[in-house]
């Protein structure tokens, strides 16, 4: 097979193909046109969504953001009203008493009363006058 015969084959094949393309019937042409319009419409919709800054996941993101905001509003007041946790360490209570200046003043005002009160709560009843 030489180059010329190969080229002739290609040229002839191409011409026959072009001729057959021109003879495609109207039914097929019509269906192809409809398919083309559907494809172009699909492309336009897709492009439009990106052009106007609204990607397809926007609704999902909006719903998620609304749910998070709702949860924050629901739980925030409850967090604010919650009582302080009780502490198991009594040293903190003693520290408060010692730090309080009012308590120290009371002790200085009436030491005899406190002495009596201490004896009254003691287990030996005979010591109370």
């Amino acid at each position: 097979m030489n180059e010329d015969s190969a080229t002739l084959l290609e040229e002839r094949s191409r011409a026959l193909f072009e001729d057959s393309v021109e003879r495609v019937d109207m039914r097929v042409r019509s269906r192809l046109t409809r398919a083309r319009h559907a494809a172009v419409e699909a492309a336009a919709k897709r492009k439009g969504a990106w052009v106007f800054g609204a990607p397809r996941w926007t609704p999902a993101a909006g719903v998620t953001a609304a749910a998070l905001l709702g949860a924050a509003l629901w739980f925030a007041p409850q967090m604010g009203n919650r009582p302080m946790p009780a502490t198991d360490n009594p040293a903190f209570e003693d520290l408060d008493i010692v730090a309080s200046s009012d308590e120290m003043e009371l002790l200085q005002d009436d030491p005899e009363f406190y002495d009596w009160a201490n004896r009254a709560t003691s287990p030996d009843p005979g010591s109370v006058g």
């Binding site: 193909f17 057959s20 495609v24 042409r29 192809l32 046109t33 398919a35 083309r36 172009v40 492309a43």
Partner: peptide, 18 residues
Amino acid sequence: QTRELEKFLAEVERRAFR
């Protein structure tokens, strides 16, 4: 670009079909 795409598809559709 949409117009260009339509032009391209119109040009190629019958050949692709064959």
